[in-house]
């Protein structure tokens, strides 16, 4: 069963906690995290790594040192010596989300922030853009983000990247299975090759995750 984890991150981590989490990561990942300009980005990426490692330690009863996390050429993380493990991470604003499954999975969360919707014409598929124009103003933004997160979650499941304009949502629904959640002012889309979604999101915190990895 596909499992979804959510971690809220709204205040800066204690420096000792930051260093502890960093110590659990591969050298290359540590260097990548330390190169971020903004601490928020560094910590979101760090905590995404913590979700991956702690969850795999817990689900498969392995030690953190038993596996390495690699990235494909599009930046998608994977583990090479556990072929039955599929996972994906997404973060936006205060939320870091992780999806874990025995089959390929993609996840995308976005904070619904004001956006110049005129750019939707060159980004959305023609039918999704036309549908957006028929909507009342407050619903248009949500529609835009829904189309975006559906497409992102699909691309992330495949391990590929963005092409513009996006595929139409009708084509996406014909190609894979999707579920959506609204969390505060965020929209979350999850894409799977099967339709067995858990309705429950597992909310966790840094301390719980650290206890799984220590």
């Amino acid at each position: 069963m596909l499992k979804i984890f959510a971690l809220k991150h709204s205040t800066k981590l204690d420096s000792l906690v930051f260093q502890e989490i960093l110590s659990y990561l591969d050298k290359g990942e540590q260097e990548r995290i330390l190169k971020f300009y903004r601490w928020q980005d560094a910590e979101r990426s760090l905590l995404g790594n913590l979700i991956i490692r702690a969850t795999i330690c817990d689900l498969f009863q392995v030690k953190n040192s038993d596996f390495e996390v690699f990235r494909n050429e599009m930046g998608k993380p994977y583990i090479n010596n556990m072929p039955q493990v599929f996972f994906n991470i997404s973060h936006s604003g205060h939320w870091i989300m992780g999806a874990f499954d025995s089959f390929p999975v993609g996840i995308d969360i976005e904070q619904i922030k004001p956006l110049d919707l005129n750019m939707g014409k060159s980004i959305l598929a023609a039918n999704d853009y036309e549908e957006m124009l028929k909507m009342k103003a407050p619903d248009r933004l949500k529609h835009f983000y829904k189309c975006w997160t559906l497409s992102e979650s699909y691309q992330k499941m495949l391990g590929s990247g963005v092409t513009l304009p996006l595929s139409s949502t009708n084509n996406l629904y014909d190609s894979a299975f999707f579920t959506n959640h609204i969390i505060d002012d965020y929209i979350l889309s999850i894409c799977s090759s099967h339709g067995l979604f858990s309705e429950r999101i597992i909310y966790t915190d840094t301390e719980q995750l650290l206890n799984l990895i220590r």
Binding site: Y37, D41, R44, E110, K113, M119, I123, W148, V162, L164
Partner: peptide
């Protein structure tokens, strides 16, 4: 993904800005 740490929606905004200011499109690649 690293460095400036922009997310995917910010990438769209960059694409829209490039198109608006320079008239250069990234669609279709």
């Amino acid at each position: 993904g690293e460095g400036l740490g922009l997310d995917s929606v910010e990438a769209l905004d960059v694409v829209a800005g490039i198109e608006q200011i320079f008239g250069v499109k990234l669609q279709g690649i």
